[in-house]
Computed example of a mutant assay.
Amino acid sequence: MIERATPIDHEAPPTFETLLRTVAEMDTPDGFKAELIRGKIIVSPWSKLRYLRPMRALRRQLEAHSPDGHIVETTPILFRFPAAKRAYGPDLFVADETAFKEEGRHADGEALSLVAEFTSVSTKDADWHEKLDVYGQLVPVYLVVDMQASEITCFSDPSPHGYQYRKTVPFGTPLPVPEPFGFSLDTTGF
């Protein structure tokens, strides 16, 4: 008997564009968001009530220091990163307002000037690893507001190898936020 290879039919994994369309068509329950993380659609709850005060404090300060033509928002918008085959819905973002003139449901990640993620037990790993790697190649400033450790970390100076700058402070200590913002963030309200 002669051995020979036998092909096995299998379905190809869905493409990035197919996953984006699926997310757009999902009827995500109120209070939840869907993101593409590690090639999978992940549905997670929006932030807890106690996150509102630090989110508002951060939003107000960023609005006063954002680049011209950029908006600060907490609206559930999905930003796509095609090179990484990822799409994230940040807790808070600053982006060029021209990105929202397009048709469709997914904004271009290149429009972002800052992203802030507020960690939770269920999202902490993705915020500190997965998203850090993707944002670190494109987004000028990434803030990780670690609600479990009561500290905030600023990453900046993106490169093909990730962020070149990192600064962490406990809540209550000012945090320098580099250009294009260029101010000291007051974290006492966090």
Rank of each mutant, 00 (worst) to 15 (best):
56 R>G: 05
24 A>M: 10
53 R>N: 06
128 W>K: 15
98 T>I: 10
58 L>G: 08
39 G>N: 13
8 I>C: 07
30 D>M: 06
176 P>H: 02
148 Q>A: 06
123 T>K: 11
89 G>P: 08
121 V>K: 09
79 F>I: 03
39 G>W: 15
29 P>W: 08
51 Y>N: 15
123 T>S: 14
77 I>T: 14
55 M>G: 13
176 P>Y: 03
84 A>R: 12
177 V>G: 01
83 A>V: 04
40 K>R: 11
46 W>R: 15
45 P>I: 03
95 A>R: 05
70 H>G: 04
10 H>Q: 13
119 T>F: 07
162 G>M: 05
189 G>N: 14
93 F>W: 11
145 V>W: 05
69 G>Y: 10
177 V>C: 00
92 L>W: 08
121 V>T: 15
7 P>G: 08
156 S>I: 05
135 Y>Q: 02
156 S>Y: 06
141 V>S: 00
175 L>S: 02
189 G>W: 10
49 L>G: 14
47 S>I: 03
2 I>P: 14
106 H>I: 15
176 P>T: 02
119 T>R: 02
104 G>M: 02
161 H>S: 14
102 E>C: 12
110 E>S: 14
55 M>K: 12
83 A>K: 12
139 V>E: 09
169 V>D: 05
165 Y>P: 01
57 A>G: 06
41 I>P: 07
24 A>H: 12
126 A>H: 11
117 E>R: 03
181 F>T: 03
188 T>F: 04
106 H>N: 07
137 Q>S: 01
70 H>V: 01
135 Y>S: 02
159 S>L: 09
183 F>I: 03
62 L>T: 09
42 I>W: 05
67 P>K: 00
24 A>P: 11
183 F>W: 05
127 D>F: 12
159 S>D: 08
167 K>G: 05
48 K>P: 07
15 T>W: 01
156 S>V: 04
98 T>V: 12
99 A>F: 14
107 A>H: 04
165 Y>K: 06
50 R>I: 10
121 V>W: 05
164 Q>K: 11
22 T>S: 14
72 V>P: 00
184 S>K: 07
164 Q>Y: 05
94 V>E: 04
21 R>K: 15
53 R>E: 00
190 F>H: 15
163 Y>D: 02
72 V>Y: 03
28 T>Q: 13
5 A>T: 15
186 D>E: 06
149 A>C: 08
1 M>R: 12
142 Y>A: 08
52 L>S: 12
99 A>G: 14
179 E>D: 10
22 T>M: 15
133 D>T: 11
22 T>D: 13
113 S>R: 05
134 V>F: 04
